[in-house]
């Protein structure tokens, strides 16, 4: 589903991704772990198409098409979802308005019919209930006045409504207490299906107890230095990244 080959990317002329190769098949969950500054968030932004991140070599293919040739909104419509490490606050735009605009924009771009008000409301209510976010909060401005945990739940509400094929979740677990972690993990697990894939970027092995990945990759200095099964996360937790990088 997602093929990243020898990806090099830079910010302000500084190389951050340095020959990253990764294949994610349909139905799979891959975890990417790595020390601070390794380039995990950069990878997620490059996949989502954020301005300022320049790909200098390599390729990214998603469902057979050149992902890097698409604008960010086209990538979303193609099925890529980025759960942000730091979700943005948008004063004056309600969560519902944001989410409905997003859903319908994606559908329009895919040549599908827009969701009616009633259909959208049903989706949003169900998602909010599943993720333990009071529906009333969705009437407020996007993420404004939300706690760290509420922002992450809100990202998962958006994911549940948008139903992406590929979810790239950047430290969705950080800042969550144990109850919230469970709720968010359930949300991620609900999305698992043979025709979807997930890239879980995380710092901690903790999340991987709830969302058990098929593969664990270690990202250091812009490339994957090691790949293993779920047990690799435990090794990292015990020994740290230094032993791997050495």
């Amino acid at each position: 589903m997602l093929k990243i080959d020898n990806l090099h990317a830079e910010i302000d002329g500084k190389t951050i991704l340095n020959g990253l190769t990764l294949n994610v098949g349909a139905g799979e969950v891959h975890a990417i772990m790595g020390p601070n500054g390794a380039g995990k968030s950069t990878l997620s932004y490059v996949l989502a198409g954020r301005a300022g991140y320049e790909v200098t070599a390599g390729s990214v293919t998603f469902d057979g098409q050149d992902l890097l040739a698409l604008a960010p909104h086209e990538r979303a419509a193609a099925g890529v979802f980025l759960g942000l490490q730091y979700p943005v606050e948008i004063p004056g735009v309600s969560n519902l308005m944001f989410l409905r605009s997003a859903l319908n924009a994606q559908r329009t771009l895919r040549g599908e019919a827009e969701a009616s008000g009633a259909e959208f409301m049903k989706l949003a209510k169900a998602a909010a209930a599943d993720l333990g976010l009071p529906y009333e909060m969705l009437k407020r401005s996007v993420n404004q006045g939300f706690s760290g945990g509420e922002k992450k739940r809100n990202e998962m509400v958006q994911m549940a409504v948008l139903q992406p094929k590929l979810a790239v979740l950047d430290e969705t677990d950080s800042g969550l207490d144990i109850d919230a972690l469970r709720v968010v993990s359930d949300g991620i697990n609900r999305m698992r299906s043979p025709d979807r894939a997930t890239l879980l970027i995380t710092h901690y092995q903790r999340l991987l107890d709830y969302v058990v990945p098929d593969f664990v990759h270690v990202l250091v200095a812009g490339r994957i230095v090691r790949t293993g099964g779920p047990e690799l996360a435990h090794t990292l937790e015990r020994d740290g990244y230094v032993s791997i990088a050495a």
Binding site: A48, G49, R50, A51, A71, P72, H73, R75, A76, A77, F81, L82, L84, P87, V88, E89, I90, V93, M97, F98, L99, S101, A102, L103, A105, Q106, L109, V142, Q158, L162
Partner: peptide
């Protein structure tokens, strides 16, 4: 905020108008 809206599928022109 613009990137956030676009990353959810909202085209740039519409994202700017919304903000």
């Amino acid at each position: 905020a613009l990137f956030y809206l676009e990353s959810r599928g909202i085209p740039p022109v519409q994202a700017r108008a919304l903000l």
